[in-house]
Amino acid sequence: MASGRRRSWLVLAATLLVLTGAAGWGGWYGSDQAIKVVRWGGGADSVLASGNGTVTLTDSPRTRKPGTYWFEWTGAFTMFGDIVSRAPGRVTRKVIGGGTPSVGTSGAFNAVAPGDPKVTWGIDYSEIMVPTELGPAPAWYVPGKGSTWVVAVHGQNGRRKAELAVLPVVHRLGLPFLDITYRNDEGAPASPDGLLHLGDAEWRDLEAAVRTARSMGARRVLLYGTSMGGVIVGAFLSRSALAITVSAVIMDAPPYDWERVGRWFAGNQLHLPAAAAWLSDRVVEWRTGVDLARLDLLTHPPAVRPPLLLIHTDADLQVPVQASRDLAAAGARLNWKIRYEEFHGGDHTEAWNVDRTRYDRLVGDFLTPFKP
């Protein structure tokens, strides 16, 4: 009898140990998805036919997306417009810019621009170094007229080229454009712990960029942030003494409530219980010292709240569109002038891709009052 009870306790203890270990591993793995620095590589889409202003690619969820996208291969790119036709295993798209790849070319089908301002749009620029507290961080500077600058901030594990979709509109308006990097970016200094801080520390690099812009003649700034870039902008508005220089803000799909994003993604994409997301969030806070709740724009609105153009796609698979709807609905209560624009289709931060004409018009109208 005693030995049987002992075996039962041993089985229970072993089971608890396994469950605890699994939960700990899951929490650590989940936290890695949020804060680990990742360098994304290329894709594996192939060209099956080419000519007469079209290119046929292998059919995939990426290549069949309607709208404006890029295809990058070694040292070159193509800008694609509408889908012309589809057949089993094949998608034919219209070429609207760049080069034309030959049959057999393998490359990456992307939602973001393929290179710097000159490569992507033929717009001249210079690279400047922003002196952040961790060291110099590169930024692309496109000159313009007047003393109101647009400062662009990319998202989590992204690159500054992701912000270039908006550059043609900004350039037509004559506004100077500064596309920044921040800690852990390629070419920028690493954070002391080598981890992302989800906006909680990165905002200081944005502050350094705004300070640099002011040293170059900027008196007012317009902030444009996509994905986590929007969270960085929000933290800057909450904590920086330079926030008073901001005249307007554009945010595209900001994951401002990280805990809500984690619960939604765990349930809808990974089919895991909310407890898994809760545990991952606690590990994130333990590893980084970040207070996730403090970054929530809905419950902790920024101290400075300039007019905000908020954009989101209804098919976003990474950040729930309802979060942006809720922030917009709370605008009056928060004493925050928010204009919300929702796009149909398109994954995370792909509003420009699914309807470039509308996106450019919205951004242009929003920024026109600041035209020099």
Score class of each variant (00 low, 15 high):
Trp28Lys: 04
Ala241Leu: 13
Gly89Trp: 04
Lys65Cys: 12
Leu298Asn: 04
Ile83Arg: 01
Gly99Phe: 07
Thr368Leu: 15
Gly364Asp: 02
Leu327Asp: 07
Ser247Ala: 15
Ile35Tyr: 12
Arg6Phe: 12
Ser46Thr: 14
Asp252Cys: 08
Phe343Met: 02
Phe343Leu: 07
Leu298Tyr: 11
Tyr29Ile: 07
Arg294Pro: 00
Thr132Gly: 03
Gly289Cys: 08
Arg160Asp: 10
Ala190Leu: 06
Arg214Leu: 06
Val231Met: 11
Tyr359Ala: 04
Ala13Phe: 11
Val231Thr: 15
Gln318Val: 12
Ser102Asn: 05
Ile83Thr: 11
Val11Glu: 04
Tyr141Asp: 11
Tyr359Pro: 02
His197Trp: 12
Asp257Ala: 15
Leu223Ile: 11
Leu196Arg: 14
Glu207Thr: 09
Met129Asn: 12
Met79Gln: 15
Glu72Ser: 13
Glu127Arg: 07
Trp28Ile: 11
Ser215Asn: 09
Asp355Gly: 02
Gly27Pro: 03
Tyr256Gly: 08
Thr299Gln: 04
Thr120Ile: 10
Pro143Thr: 14
Gly234Pro: 03
Gly104Tyr: 05
Arg211Gly: 15
Leu10Val: 13
Arg7Met: 13
Phe236Arg: 10
Phe177Asn: 06
Leu198Met: 12
Lys145Met: 08
Gln318Leu: 15
Leu292Gly: 10
His300Glu: 03
Pro301Ser: 01
Leu334His: 08
Thr78Leu: 12
Glu342Gln: 15
Leu362Phe: 07
Trp203Ile: 07
Phe236Thr: 13
Ala152Glu: 04
Met79Gly: 08
Pro138Leu: 07
Asn335Ile: 00
Tyr182Ser: 09
Pro66Ile: 04
Thr368Pro: 00
Ala108Gln: 11
Asp347Pro: 02
Gly199Ser: 10
Thr63Asn: 06
Glu127Trp: 05
Arg64Met: 05
Ala139Arg: 13
Ala332Cys: 06
Ala351Gln: 05
Leu327Val: 11
Pro138Gln: 09
Ala241Cys: 02
Val166Ile: 10
Pro192Leu: 14
Leu279Ala: 12
Val95Cys: 08
Gly107Phe: 02
Leu10Tyr: 10
Asp365Asn: 13
Thr74Phe: 07
Gly43Tyr: 02
Ser31Ala: 15
Gly262Trp: 05
Tyr224Val: 14
Thr288Trp: 09
Tyr125Ala: 12
Phe71Glu: 03
Met1Arg: 14
Ala2Gly: 07
Pro320Cys: 14
Trp352Ile: 01
Gly99Glu: 15
Val37Ser: 07
Gly98Met: 09
Ala274Met: 06
Ala275Pro: 02
Val304Cys: 01
Leu48Tyr: 00
Leu295Phe: 11
Gly26Tyr: 05
Ala23His: 05
Gly51Ala: 04
Thr368His: 10
Met1Tyr: 13
Pro131Lys: 09
Ala275Gly: 09
Trp9Val: 14
Ala137Ile: 00
Ala137Arg: 02
Ile83Pro: 00
Ala44His: 14
His154Pro: 02
Gly346Pro: 00
Pro66Thr: 06
Glu133Ile: 05
Ala13Cys: 15
Ala323Asn: 01
Ala277Gly: 03
Gly262Gln: 11
Asp316Phe: 06
Ala76His: 13
Ala208Lys: 12
Asp59Ala: 14
Phe343Lys: 02
Phe366Cys: 05
Leu164Asp: 06
Gly99Pro: 00
Ser31Tyr: 09
Glu163Trp: 07
Gly27Tyr: 09
